[in-house]
Design a protein around this nucleic acid. Sequence first.
DNA 1: TAATTTTATTAACATTGTTAAGTATATTAT
DNA 2: ATAATATACTTAACAATGTTAATAAAATTA
Lengths: 200, 200
Amino acid sequence: MNKRNLQKQRIMRFFIDAAKEIIKTEGIKNITARRVGETAGYSYATIYNYFKDMNTLLTYCAFDFLEDCYEHVITFKDDKWDCKEQLIIYNIEFFKYFAENPEIFKLVYLEDLGKIPEELSKRPSISRLILDNLNESSKKGYLQKNSIDLLLELMGASIHGKLLFYLNRPNENQDLDFVLQVIEKEIEFLLNNNEVKNYE
Amino acid sequence: MNKRNLQKQRIMRFFIDAAKEIIKTEGIKNITARRVGETAGYSYATIYNYFKDMNTLLTYCAFDFLEDCYEHVITFKDDKWDCKEQLIIYNIEFFKYFAENPEIFKLVYLEDLGKIPEELSKRPSISRLILDNLNESSKKGYLQKNSIDLLLELMGASIHGKLLFYLNRPNENQDLDFVLQVIEKEIEFLLNNNEVKNYE
DNA sequence: TAATTTTATTAACATTGTTAAGTATATTAT
DNA sequence: ATAATATACTTAACAATGTTAATAAAATTA
């Protein structure tokens, strides 16, 4: 019976959207089953008819946010850019998305969500976007082909590490624009220094 | 009255050690005021005579663990190593410390500890250790002097990002030895590719 | 319309961090 | 040494939380 399923998906969506809204405004620490229920227009206990527990609901939110992030970044894809510039833009916009939504970062990357439902694991990923770019950059001679994997891993780890420091170290109080500049410089450093020497 | 203070420090230590033990064994999610009190040999309410709240106690634990981590890493300092090898060893041992103690990583880097008491902010830091090494590596010609800051930042962000993925992605189930190899390769990549050309 | 299944709510429970009130212990003054 | 006082600790209580069970309401089917 497919109608059943559609209706179920819709109600789930109410709860997910309610939870996302609360996370963005009140923060991950202040989300409660009761608040989600109220915002969604249901009793708090109804959540448990649709999600095993709060953690499961939060996991849905996390993957939803990841998709939102992808949508944000892909907005800045433009063929007018040279692929090195494009790579920098991807990284900067990715960083900005979470820098402007600290609570989303906390949910997606810092929260212990436990086992992830398989259905959620396969979605369009930014990692793929960067990989494609690195392949193109390699063709253009910005880096050696056998460095692609290493650079993908290195850039990914680095930008997440930076976000971790930027968002979880209230004392240090880093300036966003400065961090963005550092990101740009690092990427230029990584590509320039591994440029294929054509004259060899 | 200094005796008072000494006694106070001692009781605080009981609670801190109790909390650290619980975090290591039961995990950060399963620590409760009541358990800490019991393990320390006091009532749970006594904690509040020594710490403003649980978060403050956890913050003390976090900085204590950071010191333990430093102690662990410094163990592997040895003049027999070339400074590039030494740099790899520092990074690998740092990674291993948290890889073997996931709950410590969660507390130190992922937990939202709020404002950090000033007294805790100044401790021997691994970042300093790496910086010294990079300066030495630069003298030996493994990298250019004006790349030191960038590499320090890049390596630091990268290794924390890797830890984040390694410890918070139970589905992906990465192999520790493989990650350690990647770390080694990345450092070699970063130093080799920026070697100062002496013949220029 | 009656019977049944599905969906949602209310009430209750155990656990949590934290506080206030009270009790024991140690310190000081006489 | 004993009374007065300050310090250290505990017990009891509170409100908030996630979750479940019992119950009511609504929708579907017969």
